[in-house]
Amino acid sequence: MRELTYAKALREALIEEMERDPNILLLGEDIGVYGGVFKVTEGLLARFGPERVIETPISEAGFVSAAVGLAMTGKHPMAELMFMDFAYVAADSIFNQAAKMRYMSGGRAQVPLTIRTQQGGGRGNAAQHSQSLETFFTHIPGLKVVLPSTPYDAKGLLKSALRDPNPVMFIEHKLLYNTKGLVPDGEYTVPLGKADVKRSGTDATVVTWSRTVLHALEAADLAAADGIDVEVIDLRCTVPLDIDTVVESVKKTGRLVVAHEAHRRLGVGAEIAALVQELAFDYLDAPVERVGALDIPTPYSKPLEDEALPDAAKIVQAIKRVTYSET
């Protein structure tokens, strides 16, 4: 085991998978000489050459669809969207092309395509560079959706994504790249669609993913000081959705908070709340709480952005509400 940053763990996954499978190639803006704006692809151009690390124009609709064409004809492309917000530019390529091609063709086409991108706020990037959009990709059938929170998960999940025969939205968080964690020296993968209990507890369950896992773990520590023992489940993927792990936890704790950085309104938290009331209604001792971003465009100014986004304190408040504790 070594300590690696999230960015370096992702880079290792790319290198190992590109060495394993010659059909994997990367496309994206500034991913070559510059190494990507978060340096995840640093040095890969020199290592694998311009035929496998393909720098593209600022042309998201074009190069994501070109990646669909590459995928349909035998390659396994990894297209990088520099910011999640640019996915709207490539919306047709993702939702109408990649996600539906296999179904529309009755199984005759296959699209092994990984789209890597990063999302989230907290850095003052304002409304067009801070969004968390996993809800869209979760809603439209045909895409797998991965949101790693730790360097270990980032590497293992990216390796799985690059071995998956389907389109995968691999969603990183811009404020996780410099976080550190232990990563094994040898080969390993993390399966898509398996949640991870990041902390076990008995009094309340917090289901979360991506950077909000870090807030939830901090919230769990704060709640522990008040005698509340919180279980934190990192969903890791919203498709496939490991609802079994959530339900199992709720049967133990009887109380559920869902926390994510995406907008609260119609967020994945709403889906999880609905599923849990369908599957474990009799086990719930309090209404399910949802913590998410305010339903406004992400503001620029720090006090405004802090107010808009979830944090540990907001999750603690939700934990106290579901446990009927003093707030």
Binding site: A61, G62, F63, S65, A66, A67, V68, G69, L70, A71, M72, T73, G74, K75, P77, D92, S93, N96, Q97, M101, M104, S105, G106, R108, A109
Partner: peptide
Amino acid sequence: HYTDLSVGLLGENAIVGAGAPIAVGAALR
């Protein structure tokens, strides 16, 4: 949405311009 990879047909498309970049990707391959 006629599609048949066995004869190289990567698909009709109901989005009229969408097949063009897919063909460019296939050509790049």
